[in-house]
């Protein structure tokens, strides 16, 4: 099983290749969209690279739960309601949603995911495989 450090370096390498950023920009606290400039199509690229690098399968919607963000039961006036936040927490135990909860605007969701969140997600997948 890879160590946290090994996971970070592989995730870092995937992000450097997918986003054309420098290694030293890919810090654990860096946000993918805000700091590293990821656009929506980059997430497909990143998912393919992580799947190959870690030999894991990342089902659509698991890393980015689009179905919750577009569900009228969970989104009211562009914000995720309490029931939606509960669902997000269940589906994304790897992500720190503390900051997002304060103002859960759907449009800000993609901007809050960090490199560390991604490492946590990969670690949970690699653990599940072992």
């Amino acid at each position: 099983m890879p160590t946290q450090d090994e996971i970070f370096h592989k995730v870092q390498s995937a992000l450097v290749d997918a986003l054309g950023v420098d290694e030293d920009e890919v810090k654990p606290e860096a946000t993918l969209v805000g700091d590293l400039g990821a656009e929506s199509i980059d997430f497909l690229d990143i998912v393919f690279r992580l799947e190959k690098s870690f030999d894991i399968k990342i089902p659509r919607g698991e890393l980015f739960p689009e179905d919750i963000l577009t569900n009228a039961d969970y989104v009211v006036d562009g914000k995720i309601n309490d029931a939606g936040l509960e669902q997000l927490k269940k589906r994304m135990p790897f992500a720190d949603l503390t900051g997002f909860e304060k103002n859960p605007a759907v449009q800000d969701f993609a901007t809050m995911l960090t490199v560390q969140d991604m490492c946590n997600y990969v670690a949970s997948k690699v653990d599940g495989k072992a």
């Binding site: 497909l44 690229d45 393919f48 799947e51 190959k52 659509r60």
Partner: peptide
């Protein structure tokens, strides 16, 4: 083809 799935391919 390196990867292919419902949403796209690499």
């Amino acid at each position: 083809i390196d990867s292919i799935e419902e949403s796209g391919a690499r």
